[in-house]
C-alpha cells in the first residue's frame, strides 16, 4: 500500500516539476497545483494506511477509536491542505487568465514588466514610473 502511494506520489512529482519548468504560465501554475497533490498523497501515506482499516469514526456507545481504525490526524491535515491548495489554484488560474487577457500571451520569458532588460551598455534600465 505504502509502496503504491510512494510510486504514485513520485509520478505526480515528476509530472508537476515537468510542467513547472515550462515557459507557458498556464502550464506552470497547473504544475504547481499538481505538485500539491503529490504532497497531499504523501500526507495521506504518513498515516500508514493498510487494506482493511476502518474509518476513524468512534463507534456508537464507545469512547475511543478501535485499534483497526485509521489514524485521523493525517486525514485532517490532508483535508486542510486540499482546501488551501484549492484556494491557491483558483487564485493562480485567475492570475494567469488575467495576464493572458491583458498581454495577449503567457510566455514567462516575455514578462519583463518589473525587471526590464538592461540597456545596451549593460546598465540597469531607467525607472520610468513616478512615485
Amino acid at each position: 500500500m505504502i509502496l503504491a502511494l510512494a510510486v504514485a506520489a513520485g509520478a505526480i512529482v515528476f509530472a508537476g516539476v515537468y510542467l513547472i519548468l515550462s515557459r507557458d504560465l498556464l502550464r506552470m501554475v497547473v504544475g504547481v497545483s499538481i505538485l500539491g497533490y503529490a504532497a497531499n498523497l504523501a500526507l495521506l501515506a504518513s498515516g500508514r494506511p493498510e487494506p482493511g482499516m476502518k474509518p476513524a469514526i468512534v463507534p456508537e456507545g464507545l469512547e475511543a477509536l478501535s485499534s483497526a481504525a485509521a489514524d485521523p490526524v493525517p486525514q485532517a491535515l490532508v483535508l486542510t491542505s486540499i482546501v488551501i491548495g484549492f484556494a491557491l489554484t483558483c487564485f493562480s488560474l485567475v492570475l494567469v487568465l488575467a495576464i493572458q487577457q491583458r498581454t495577449g500571451g503567457a510566455d514567462a520569458d516575455a514578462l519583463r514588466e518589473v525587471e526590464p532588460p538592461p540597456t545596451h551598455d549593460h546598465q540597469p534600465a531607467l525607472v520610468e514610473e513616478e512615485p
Binding site: F86, A87, C90, F91, L93, V94, L97, A98, Q101
Partner: peptide, 11 residues
C-alpha cells in the same frame, strides 16, 4: 470560491 469562480467566468 463562488467569487473566484464568477471572476474567472467574467474574464
Amino acid at each position: 470560491l463562488g467569487g473566484l469562480l464568477v471572476s474567472i467566468l467574467a474574464i
